[in-house]
């Protein structure tokens, strides 16, 4: 038992290196995924059938072909075609494209869920379609899409574990190393707990974003109120009071 913790203490710097790699992949992959999601999500609702078809094809392709296949394609095939990519870059690329395709559907669906009246009001105010999307529709769609994006982010974090297949020393790789000096149960429990804590922190961050986004739409309390310890009823009361 003690030797387990001793081994853990000795391995801690390496494990933290692994956590750092995992975090870089998660954040980099998520940023790339968001960029792809917004681009494809907007293209997938264009009227032009060529544009829409192109976006749909990309979305279905990256959703349908499996993350591991995409990772291996970038890692094993591209070098043979003369394109050498850094493993970290390959990891971020595969994660970003795969989860970006999933998130594109979330973006598209959320934009479509913004009530019809909001679109009509922008027409009545003669806004251009760019103004309408940027200033009215997207800010409202954003609040709708956060819960699904939050789920996808956790999937993405879990998905980063596959980069150990392409020789990257991420958290999974380091935990596998730790197993040699400790017993199996100990090493993997530590690994799972670290992943769980990371996932939990990401969930909290996304929840905060959601509270903030909803507050901007005049629904629910502000982030500061949500984080304060006293019971947060005031935000709702203000809304109800005005109804009298």
């Amino acid at each position: 038992m003690d030797s387990n913790f001793e081994a853990l203490g000795a391995a801690l710097p390496r494990i933290l290196d692994g956590v750092w790699i995992t975090l870089q992949l998660t954040v980099g992959g998520a940023l790339l995924a968001m960029l792809i999601a917004v681009t494809l999500g907007l293209l997938a609702r264009q009227e032009n059938i060529l544009v829409r078809g192109f976006a749909r094809a990309i979305i279905e392709f990256f959703r349908g072909t499996s993350l591991v296949v995409q990772l291996f394609w970038f890692f094993f095939v591209l070098p043979q075609l003369g394109v050498e990519l850094d493993a970290m870059f390959v990891g971020i690329l595969a994660l970003g494209l795969n989860y970006g395709a999933y998130a594109a559907e979330v973006v598209r669906g959320s934009i479509n869920s913004v009530p019809q009246g909001q679109w009509e009001a922008t027409t009545a105010l003669s806004m251009t379609s760019a103004q309408r999307m940027r200033r009215v529709i997207f800010p409202q769609a954003w609040a709708l899409m956060i819960p699904s994006l939050s789920n996808l982010l956790i999937h993405l974090l879990k998905g980063t574990a596959i980069v150990s297949f392409i020789t990257m020393a991420d958290l999974t790789f380091r935990v596998d190393q730790l197993r040699i000096d400790t017993d199996t149960f100990f090493a993997y429990t530590v690994g799972l707990i670290i992943y769980f804590v990371l996932a939990y922190i990401l969930t909290l961050v996304m929840n905060m974003l959601e509270v903030q986004a909803k507050h901007r739409l005049g629904r629910g309390e502000s982030l500061r109120e949500a984080l304060s310890l006293r019971s947060p009823d005031t935000g709702v009361d203000a809304g109800e009071g005005a109804r009298s």
Partner: peptide, 25 residues
Amino acid sequence: MVFQQFNLFPNMTVIENIIEAPVHV
């Protein structure tokens, strides 16, 4: 146009709703 369901933009305050189109359109 004024709509049956008001259709104010919930992501903007009252005054932001009113100045949105005069400023940006």
